[in-house]
Every structure is written in structure tokens, then in C-alpha cells.
Design a protein around this nucleic acid. Structure first.
Lengths: 143, 143
DNA sequence: ATGTTATTGATACTGTGTCTCATATGAACG
DNA sequence: CGTTCATATGAGACACAGTATCAATAACAT
């Protein structure tokens, strides 16, 4: 996901294309794996962009609304974001390098149907998060 | 899950049985559905127990470690807890009344295997959260 | 009863995320 | 191009969650 692609989606949705937003888009695009809002704020300061805290949070929220970035809740309880394609899917998060792989729906349907039936529960949404170690990290390349 | 059961597990694990912990256990037992740490602190103050903020957090953390209570991440991003049995399972959270139903493993295995194979990813843990409306709420009893 | 040790509560502190508001800026229009 | 005006920005204040410190206290084995 490039910064340009992010900005294009933003414009398509009727939002203004501004310099601060372009900067945040670039920071997101430059990130590997997941990151917190705080990480982005730090990046912004380190690179001497004049991006304010509030703007970083707001832009991230905007990207999330547009589905360009998704929030994942790490086992530690902190909130992280990952850039991803705007279709329904889940994430496999590598606990070693922090990268998030997209996981397609993957036969969860029957399991969900079973749950709905057994519990007489009307499912409106669900979230699956898988944690583990990716192939690259297993081969020893921990970065 | 009664307050006594909570305290019994606590004692079995070699922790001291103290009055503040008993109070927190009672607060947890009296709760329906999910609640945040802040909710418990408020309960404690409202009932004029002399429980300090730190103790409420600490006790909740302790219960979580022992698996007597489990943390769930709500779609809103806030952290909530639910009392539950200490075996691996997932939760179906009713967005209307806030109650959490326990969901047994439910045929997730094949789906996870598929993910592991396709992505060449070694899964160490996973979390499934299902949101929707429970049977009672669908019938109109919103509390 | 008593001594040891875990636990407690007050308080201070670190972070995270939101809100406000005066100022600045994009883009549509002339 | 310049003007206009809604939108977006940044600084700072704020609200809240969670953690750390530490002297005082209470559990429990003896």
C-alpha cells in the first residue's frame, strides 16, 4: 500500500488532500508490520515534519474509517494499526517481527453458523486474530 | 461464578485471602456481562467499600492470570472483562445487553490448519470474538 | 501472641486519546 | 489568478486508563 494509493482513496471519498495527510500516509506506507498511534507520532517528530499529535490521530482515524488501515488488538492489550486492503479479512500477527499477514475468510462460515445455531445468537460481526511465527522468522531472519 | 468460588481458586493458587480481594470478588460476581476496570472502581466507591484504585486493578489482573476472568477487546477499542470458566473458549458478546456467552472451540481447528498451511505460519494462539444480539435481546427483553 | 512477608491505599506519574479554538489552507468559483 | 469559505490544522488543555512507589497494615505459619 503506497502513500499515493492512500491519498487517492482519501480523495475519492471526498476528503481534502492536504500536506499533513500526505505526510501521515507516507509514514504509514513506510511502516512494516503493526504500529501504534504513538509510533507514528514519534516518527513524525523524528523526521521533523511539523505534524501535530491531534492530526496524526485524526488521520489514522480517517484511514481506519475508509478501511485503508485496520486496528488490531494485540494480546498485550495495546491498540495497533496495520495497512491493509479494504475487504473483510483477518490478520495473522507474527509475534517475532510484528508483521501482519492478511488472512482471507478461510472457512470460518460453518463454524460461525454452528455457534449461531447452538447459542441462538444472531451474529452481526466477528473478529479472528491469530498469533504465531511467520515463515521468514522461523528461518531465522528476525528482521 | 460466585465470589466464594473466586476466592477458593485464589487460595488454591497460594494467594492470600484478604478482605479487599473478597470485596472485588463480590463486585465481579454481581456483574452481569462485561465490565471495565473503571466500572469496578466506580462500583467500589458507590458501595463505600474502602477499596483503592490500585487494588481493584491488581485484583482484576490476578483473577485474569488465574483464568477466572478473561479480557475481551470490544469493537470500541476499550478493554473489558468477563467472568468465565478457566478453559480455552471464545466469547459471543451481545451488543445490546453486554452479556458474554461462552463459545466452545467449535470446529475452528480445520480453519486454523488451513490458514497455517496456506500462509506457512506457525500458529501459537488465536482469539475469536463474535458480536451480535442474543436470543433474550431479540425477544425484546433488553435487560 | 509474634514475626515475616504479601498486600494495601494514597499519591504521583506515564501514556493514550479527545476536545477546543484560533489560525491556516485547499479547492471551487469567478 | 485572486477571493471565499468550509475544512483541516496545531497547540495546548483535558479526561481517562493503567502503572510505580512506598510507608502502613493485615494474613498466616509458627
Amino acid at each position: 500500500m503506497t502513500a499515493d494509493a492512500l491519498m487517492a482513496s482519501l480523495e475519492r471519498a471526498g476528503h481534502r488532500v492536504t500536506t499533513p495527510r500526505r505526510v501521515v500516509a507516507q509514514l504509514v506506507a513506510d511502516r512494516e508490520g503493526h504500529f501504534t498511534a504513538g509510533d507514528l507520532v514519534d516518527d513524525a517528530r523524528r523526521r521533523h515534519t511539523g505534524i501535530g499529535r491531534a492530526t496524526a490521530f485524526r488521520t489514522l482515524e480517517l484511514f481506519t474509517e475508509l478501511g485503508l488501515v485496520e486496528r488490531v488488538d494485540l494480546p498485550s492489550g495495546s491498540h495497533a494499526y496495520v495497512a491493509c486492503e479494504p475487504v473483510h479479512h483477518h490478520h495473522a500477527i507474527c509475534t517475532s517481527c510484528g508483521r501482519a499477514l492478511d488472512v482471507a475468510e478461510a472457512g470460518l462460515g460453518p463454524a460461525l453458523d454452528g455457534i449461531a445455531r447452538r447459542l441462538d445468537f444472531q451474529i452481526t460481526s466477528h473478529r479472528l486474530e491469530v498469533f504465531g511465527v511467520c515463515a521468514a522468522c522461523r528461518r531465522g531472519a528476525t528482521r
